[in-house]
Simulated assay, not measured.
Amino acid sequence: MKKLTAWTLILALVLVLAACGKSTSGNAANQTLTVGASAVPHAEILKKAIPLLKKKGIDLKVKVFQDYVLPNKALTSKQLDANYFQHIPYLDLYNKQHNTDLVNAGKIHIEPFGIYSKKYKDVSSIKDGATVQISNNKAEQGRILLLLQTKGLVKIKSGIDPVAATLDQKNGKYKDFDNIKHLKFLQPIDPAILPKAYQHSAADLFAINTNFALQANLDPKKDALILEGASSPYANIIAVRKGDQNKKAIKELVNVLHSKTIQDFITKHYKGAVLPVSE
């Protein structure tokens, strides 16, 4: 009886150790990485990366968001391991406003920002005092002003960082730029509804983020009156909590998104409306 009991204990111990070893190995080989993203193009790009990351032992879960606030809140509260929807100027502004320390883990792509119009087919036809509908994303104001400046509609003042330029006024005049064409900037609205406003609003010009333009079946290369170039400082990034940029799974994610497979997908699928970045 004692001999049987001893063998039973040994067998139980062996089974427990085997189970522990299997569990540890399984977790290491199948690490789950949850990334929040805008629907287009971010989530679409991430979904193409799923099988590539699977081969590296990482199960990528993509959580889609429809706004620009919740993905950073979810990342800060550790509901996400990373997010993919924003550019560095927006991240910097968010950190400043919310006292957070989210960081850039890698630039992935550029979405050339566009100015759209149903009224004008040529920039030279834009009349003095034309109305411009923009989003309530203040981090985009410098970007919009840069676009308008390329066509001589405004002129950012000397000494002003274009990326940090705003529509703020002092004594009834814009502080950061000269409004050459006397453009009238309308009350900012949520960026997600800009394409709908473009279809139904009477404004002359609409500054629309490419991800929302694509969701509304707009073709930036064909439909935009003014379109940003590839040298834009507004590359979309993988954002993580400070320190997590050094984690192996995050580095693998960024490496896969920089791979030829993913870059070729971005180039072919979006036909220039989204441009890959490999730095």
Rank of each mutant, 00 (worst) to 15 (best):
A39V: 09
I237V: 13
E252T: 15
K221T: 13
C20Q: 10
I58K: 11
G172S: 13
V254A: 07
K242R: 15
I126Y: 06
I126H: 09
K78E: 02
P276C: 12
I134L: 05
T34E: 06
P191V: 06
F113E: 12
Q86N: 12
Y90Q: 11
A105G: 06
I262M: 11
T166N: 03
K119Q: 10
K151Y: 08
P188D: 03
L227E: 02
H87Q: 13
M1Q: 13
Y90T: 08
I180H: 01
T34Y: 06
I144F: 05
E44S: 14
T261C: 01
A207I: 08
V154W: 00
V254H: 11
K48I: 12
K175P: 12
I262A: 08
I208C: 10
D92S: 12
P195W: 01
R143S: 08
Q215D: 01
D168E: 14
K151G: 07
L194R: 09
C20M: 13
E111R: 15
V40T: 09
L75Q: 04
T261M: 06
K196I: 14
K175W: 01
A29C: 08
E111L: 15
N27L: 15
G272D: 06
Q141I: 02
Y68A: 00
K63W: 01
D101Q: 15
V163S: 02
Q97M: 13
A203F: 04
K73N: 00
G142F: 13
V254F: 10
I134T: 03
L275P: 00
Y120V: 13
K55H: 07
A49H: 04
L146V: 12
N95H: 11
A202E: 09
D264F: 08
L70P: 00
G159T: 12
A230P: 13
I160H: 12
Q199V: 09
Y84P: 13
I208H: 08
A213Q: 01
D101C: 14
I250N: 04
E44L: 15
Q79F: 03
K242F: 02
G129I: 04
V277Q: 08
F113K: 14
L60G: 07
V154C: 06
L146W: 14
K127Q: 15
I110Q: 05
D161E: 08
E279R: 14
L225R: 03
Q141S: 05
A28I: 15
V35M: 05
L9W: 11
D223P: 01
S25W: 12
